[in-house]
């Protein structure tokens, strides 16, 4: 990982953030023929409309509005919520921390389950275990989150009375109850991620097992366990880093639905509330923070990949 590569990668991330901020701003504030009208709805009086237009500076050219907004956002000021009249930034970041806890737990569960399953499926290539695992993976990617979530809630919360169906308890407050409330959402997200990672892990392991260095290791007479863990797994695990990073993008989208269903006050729910109440500053802040999280995660994943695999030369 050379300095030039790192500089280039960080520059790309900055560019991504600029493009994303422009898009979010364009879609929410410039694209509507009259943002004030669409914010206040049908029943707004002309005075209210005029006041809001002046407040948002809608009379100015779009680029001036953008620069003013981007300047404020850059200094950490996301504006005042139109719903609660509180600053948007701190609320969104608190919500983000809850979402990140949810996301991190899901990724942990996914890795613990998907990696062994994928390897087993590859080792039993073409046999019943492989077919079974592949079938479940297929089902996992073919169910939208809201279906998986509802079915799991129906099964585990009602039939078995194991888990609370909705709600959120912060972990420091009551660890046990917090975990029980997290279980269903984490399970839902994991089901879908496991399907992705497992498919990837299976095909990577299959590829690696066919490679020359595995054949060489076997011909050398190394025990099968050494071949598998020291030679095959190491190489097959590398792309999982990339897949997880790409899945974070998916995860951030999925979290909107999951948080809505399980009533978790994370950033996805905050965004949905903002959208349904037409709270413009909150919509912009939520969307921007989510996209930024994705861009930063991806950059970190690329850096991890470059550190782990010295063969990669990006230039």
């Amino acid at each position: 990982m050379s300095f030039a590569w790192l500089a280039r990668r960080l520059l790309l991330m900055a560019y991504t953030l600029v493009v994303v901020s422009m898009l979010v701003f364009a879609i929410t504030q410039v694209l509507p023929a009259d943002a004030a009208q669409s914010l206040l709805g049908e029943n707004a009086t002309p005075e209210m409309l005029a006041a809001l237009r002046a407040k948002l500076g809608l009379g100015d050219p779009a680029w001036q509005q953008y620069l003013r907004w981007a300047g404020r956002v850059f200094s950490g000021d996301f504006g005042i919520s139109m719903r609660t009249s509180q600053p948007v930034g701190p609320d969104m970041l608190t919500a983000l921390s809850r979402s990140l806890l949810l996301a991190a737990s899901s990724i942990l569960v996914t890795l613990l389950v998907a990696v062994p399953l994928g390897v087993v499926a590859a080792l039993r290539h073409g046999r019943l275990t492989d077919t079974g695992v592949s079938l479940i993976a297929y089902l996992g990617v073919s169910l939208p989150e809201f279906v998986t979530a509802t079915l799991l809630a129906l099964l585990l919360a009602d039939t078995l009375h194991w888990l609370p169906a909705t709600g959120y308890v912060s972990l420091p407050e009551d660890f046990g109850d917090g975990i029980r409330h997290l279980a269903l959402p984490v399970l839902t997200i994991s089901v879908i991620l496991i399907a992705h990672v497992m498919r990837m892990m299976r095909s990577e392991t299959l590829d690696v097992l066919k490679s020359d260095y595995i054949r060489a290791a076997r011909l050398k007479g190394l025990p099968e366990r050494t071949v598998l863990f020291r030679h095959a797994l190491r190489n097959a695990l590398l792309p999982v880093v990339t897949i997880i990073a790409l899945d974070v993008g998916y995860l951030l989208g999925g979290i909107i639905v999951i948080e809505e269903i399980f009533a978790i006050p994370g950033i996805g729910r905050a965004l949905m509330v903002a959208i349904t109440t037409r709270d413009l500053p909150s919509i912009q802040a939520g969307a921007l923070i989510m996209a930024a999280t994705y861009a930063i995660t991806n950059t970190l994943a690329d850096m991890t990949y470059a550190l782990l695999d010295r063969r990669i030369r990006y230039d």
Binding site: V19, V20, I27, Y250, G253, I256, L271, A287, M290, N298
Partner: peptide, 22 residues
């Protein structure tokens, strides 16, 4: 392509939600 990649930083569902809200 760099711009295209940047746009992809907005998850599909989020992009769709933003557009529909507008």
């Amino acid at each position: 392509m760099r711009t295209n990649d940047a746009v992809m930083a907005i998850p599909g569902l989020l992009m769709a939600l933003l557009l529909v809200s507008t």
